[in-house]
Design a protein around this nucleic acid. Structure first.
Ligand SMILES: Nc1nc2c(ncn2[C@H]2C[C@H](O)[C@@H](COP(=O)(O)OP(=O)(O)OP(=O)(O)O)O2)c(=O)[nH]1
Ligand SMILES: [Mg+2]
Ligand SMILES: [Mg+2]
Ligand SMILES: [Zn+2]
Length: 579
DNA sequence: GCCGTTTTCGGCCCGACTGTTTTCAGTCG
């Protein structure tokens, strides 16, 4: 299962931390961090891969492949164990203190015997001992003391829903200034990542007006603390505990800056290497010819990609996951957009735990321009959600049919169910009942800590039920709350592809399940996907945007998404899943 | 430690902000 990949990635990152404190070659450290990232993003369990397959991964060489094999066979890595012996156990924790890096951590350890956050706290009570160390002054010690409190929340990430709302507020505020020519959020938020580390905002303004912009920014109501502020760059922490980075750039560099600030870091590095190899250099200011020092492109992202010999790469793809080669070969996907979505296939009414009537739900979907809405309330085991027993479902079907007839000619109203996949993979209704439904979404809601074969078998059983159309939120994860199941995703994908049914990208920003990498693996295996909001309330329809971002990060085109099918095609597909 | 339409050895992105520095290192984006 992918748990192994996660463990290996975590070990590589730990090793990188230790090596950093030990002042090892920085490129070796970068290589190790890259290997960690590549393994972590892999859908295929490394334990099932051959040495040669491992070597074929970008960023995995002989050393890394050997270590992965060693871990899969023995459950540990000798080099990892050896490295851990080199430094005190609590020392890497110090790296979580903002502004404190490996060099200073090593200094504190060697010169002041500081071995953990606890011993640092003690040492800070006698700061004169610390400031006497060469390279440490009063200000640095003050900074450490201040930032100590934030070590714990370092690395904590925010849901995209929350970060998006805040970012829209900051951008709107900054746009009110007449000095601001353009403003946009960038970073992981623009790339549509499932969780957001911080909010990155770019402003185009004449450099001589930069201080006006900075002053307005730091004076905004949610700003709690200004962490750092210069002529072009300011970082603040909000009262809600989100970091916001503001970058101010001259309008003529806006494209280069947007590209830089959108990232990802890994994407930027590859582009900059590419520029180098073409006799140019790329920064947040411009793409520049090295010989003539003339600007080749800077104003728009499109111009810069073009000058680098690349098709425009949508932000969601900028992760160094093969997009640069694809852009060079004109093989980027035509990504799904909001306009391509014509159906909602997973939504609730007040029959179970939704707030809407069938009629209201259908009306909202119609207002969105959809040709189809599926009513899929919970099944009987979902007691806390007022799941419907067989008798209630039979009545519910009649009620849905009544609305269906009412809305005929406007929108198709499908009678469906979100039937629970029980812990053993059985469904919560008998087939005789499922058969009467136009559409069946089968989802796991309990026993979500299952791993490996148990989780895999459970989902496969549901996939192979002849009346199921969609597996809803397949892992059951809740971002920042629970991991969800970790089945063998390749096996799940293969089974769903063979049956011709769809795996869901649940668009709710707490779920985003399937995640981007798994959804991409599904598409590559020819498996259909559904993007559903799982609406319980009117506003939930707006969650679609997050599901779309995730689908785009999975390189999804409309043909991969059942919600994009035209009416006939959708009805044909629903039929084709059934015996 | 990884990698190769100039390379199997010698590179590996580029710049802002801060502090302690008298010319630059550390950290971060
Ligand atoms: N060229 C270059 N760009 C970087 C580097 N680090 C960060 N960036 C750029 C790309 C990032 O997307 C952007 C914003 O940095 P962040 O640290 O906020 O990362 P990002 O928003 O991608 O992820 P996050 O969710 O905030 O952790 O700045 C770097 O080392 N080199
Ligand atoms: Mg960010
Ligand atoms: Mg940032
Ligand atoms: Zn649901």
């Amino acid at each position: 299962m992918a748990d192994t990949n996660k463990q290996i990635a975590s070990i590589f990152n730990q090793m990188a931390d230790v090596l950093q404190i030990l002042d090892a070659n920085r490129f070796r450290i970068i290589a190790m961090q890259k290997a960690a990232r590549v393994v972590k993003e892999l859908t295929t369990d490394t334990a099932s891969m051959t040495h040669a397959e491992l070597l074929s991964l970008d960023g995995v060489g002989k050393g890394t492949a050997d270590k992965i094999v060693e871990f899969c066979e023995t459950g540990q890595m000798i080099e990892h164990n050896e490295l851990l012996k080199e430094i005190p156990k609590g020392l890497p924790d110090l790296l979580n203190i903002p502004g404190l890096g490996a060099k200073t951590v090593a200094l504190l350890w060697k010169e002041a015997d500081i071995v953990s956050i606890k011993s640092l706290e003690r040492a800070l009570k006698k700061p004169e001992l610390l400031t006497s160390i060469k390279g440490l002054g009063q200000k640095k010690i003050d900074m450490i003391a201040k930032n100590l409190a934030f070590a714990e929340q370092a690395g904590k990430r925010h849901t995209i829903g929350r970060a998006h709302l805040k970012a829209v507020y900051f951008v709107a505020q900054l746009r009110q200034l007449k000095e601001v020519k353009q403003a946009a959020y960038a970073g992981s938020l623009r790339r549509g990542k499932e969780t957001i580390g911080d909010i990155d905002i770019l402003v185009a303004a004449d450099p001589k007006h930069a201080s006006i912009v900075t002053e307005r920014f730091t004076a905004l109501e949610p700003v709690e603390d200004v962490m750092l502020s210069g002529k072009t760059k300011t970082s603040v922490r909000t009262k809600g505990g989100i970091q916001v980075d503001l970058r101010i750039i001259a309008p003529e560099s806006y494209g280069a800056a947007l590209m830089y600030f959108t990232g990802s870091k890994e994407h930027n590095v590859v582009l900059r290497e590419r520029a180098q190899s073409m006799g140019m250099t790329l920064s947040e200011y411009a793409l520049t010819d090295k010989q003539t020092e003339k600007t080749v492109a800077a104003r728009t992202e499109e111009e810069i990609y073009k000058a680098l010999g690349l098709d425009f790469i949508p932000p969601e793809l900028r992760e160094d996951r093969g997009e640069i080669i694809a852009a060079e070969e004109h093989k980027l996907p035509k990504l799904v957009t909001q306009r391509d979505i014509h159906a909602e296939l997973h939504a609730h009414t007040h029959a179970s735990d939704g707030l809407l009537s069938i009629r209201e739900l259908a009306g909202l979907a119609y207002d969105r321009g959809f040709h189809t809405i599926a009513v899929t309330d919970h099944s009987k085991s979902q007691v806390q959600a007022h799941g419907l027993d067989e008798k209630r479902l039979e009545q519910h079907i009649k009620d849905i049919h009544a609305v269906r007839d009412e809305m005929a000619g406007k929108i198709h109203v499908l009678a469906g169910s979100e039937v629970d996949i029980l812990a053993d993979g059985k469904l919560d209704y008998p087939n005789s009942l499922l058969k009467q439904l136009d559409i069946v979404v089968a989802s796991p809601h309990s026993a979500l800590s299952q791993t490996g074969k148990k989780a895999t078998d459970r989902l496969i059983k549901a996939i192979n039920n002849p009346y199921v159309h969609i597996i809803g939120h397949p892992t059951g994860r809740l971002l920042a709350r629970r991991e969800g199941m970790s089945p063998d995703m390749n096996t799940i994908i293969k089974a769903a592809a063979d049956r011709g049914i769809a795996l869901e990208i649940n668009a709710n920003h707490h779920r985003l399940d399937l995640r981007d990498t798994h959804a991409r693996a599904a598409i590559e295996a020819g498996c259909l996907l559904a993007i559903n909001t799982d609406a319980h309330r009117p506003n939930d329809f707006n969650e679609l945007q997050y599901g779309l971002l995730t689908a785009r990060r999975a390189w999804a085109e409309p043909k991969n998404i059942v919600n994009c099918f035209a009416e006939d095609k959708l009805m044909g597909w629903l039929k084709s899943c059934r015996p």
